[in-house]
């Protein structure tokens, strides 16, 4: 089961359309630029050795497996844990390097789709994992650990849902089958992730509580809001996508985004072609561009907010 999950999270090249890959590369690049600046502000020249070793740590921690049943085994993915112990920005950088090396050196995930892989497994997991965990700031250790477990589970689910949606928008999978299948498998994978994350955090609480202290509240309240919103989106979207894929397809159609999915020039049954998108790539490109601009503006706005609400020491 875990072999399957790892394979299903690291999308190889050829599975995402060029448009989707490009849009996600832009999103990832913008987030990374912010992450680099914020982390450098925080750690200065200590950043490279810290993040480098932590990236190696996540990579190595993924090798620690535990037998589940029937010859399958589970292990850590690490996105939520990295964001919780290192703060969201360094966490994102660390996961980016892990995914980058896995793709570049080991062909575990493609190059053109690396933006999407980083987005799913590095950024989404950090937002959900850290955002929810941060909400428990100042509470007792037990509350924190429970929150961390829930956050870790949800981060895996969010990443799986994102992966499914990207594949579907690229016209690579059938939505109604893939969303329930991916989320079903990852509900179990997420349990392993939650258990390992909680146990690891509990261990760190016992041995080096100073590393997880409230005084080191890394990142600001915006993360809580972002994490909560994304979690809400997952909770609402997942059942909707599973139960009525046609409904989601209709929404995507109305937004004008499905063009990438149905760009196939085969119009065997004319009834099935979508009138105003079917052959027009233009609407796709415009929709993509508008999306990118909106997201970039949002990101800039978020940076402003974080700057204001979290004065650096």
């Amino acid at each position: 089961m875990f072999v399957l999950s790892i394979a299903l999270m690291h999308i190889p090249d050829g599975f995402l359309s060029v448009t989707i890959s490009a849009v996600l590369w832009v999103l990832t690049a913008v987030t990374l630029a912010i992450a680099i600046r914020r982390s450098q502000d925080q750690f200065d020249e200590r950043l490279a050795p810290l993040a480098g070793i932590m990236a190696a740590f996540i990579f190595a921690a993924q090798m620690i497996n535990f037998p589940v049943a029937g010859g399958t085994s589970g292990h850590l993915l690490g996105g939520a844990l990295a964001a919780i112990v290192l703060g969201p920005w360094v966490g994102i950088l660390v996961m980016t390097c892990v995914i980058g090396v896995q793709g570049l050196l080991f062909q575990d995930g493609g190059l053109l789709v690396m933006g999407a892989n980083i987005f799913n497994m590095g950024i989404v997991t950090a937002l959900v994992g850290y955002g929810l965990y941060r909400a428990a700031n100042g509470r007792s250790e037990t509350v924190k650990l429970i929150t961390a477990g829930v956050a870790a589970w949800l981060s895996v689910m969010a990443a799986a849902l994102m992966t499914s949606l990207e594949l579907w928008l690229s016209g690579t999978v059938a939505l109604g089958i893939v969303v329930p299948a991916m989320l079903g498998v990852h509900a179990f994978i997420g349990l392993g992730e939650a258990l390992i994350t909680v146990a690891a955090l509990a261990f760190i609480f016992r041995v080096r509580p100073d590393l997880l202290g409230d005084s080191e509240a890394k990142g600001s309240r915006v993360w809580i809001v972002g994490g909560a919103l994304l979690t809400l989106a997952v909770v609402l979207l997942a059942p909707f996508a599973s139960a009525s894929p046609d409904g989601l397809e209709r929404v995507a159609e109305d937004v004008g985004f499905l063009g990438t999915a149905v760009a196939a020039p085969y119009e065997v049954l004319p009834d099935y072609t979508i009138p105003f998108i079917g052959s027009e790539n233009l609407s796709t490109i415009i929709a993509g561009a508008v999306g990118v601009i909106i997201v970039a503006a949002l990101a800039l706005y978020l940076v402003r907010l974080t700057r204001r609400s979290a004065p650096r020491s």
């Binding site: 740590f57 292990h75 349990l191 390992i196 760190i204």
Partner: peptide
């Protein structure tokens, strides 16, 4: 899984 988690914490 908890044993594995302890090992991960140790490694961290």
């Amino acid at each position: 899984a908890q044993v594995a988690g302890n090992m991960v914490g140790q490694l961290f």
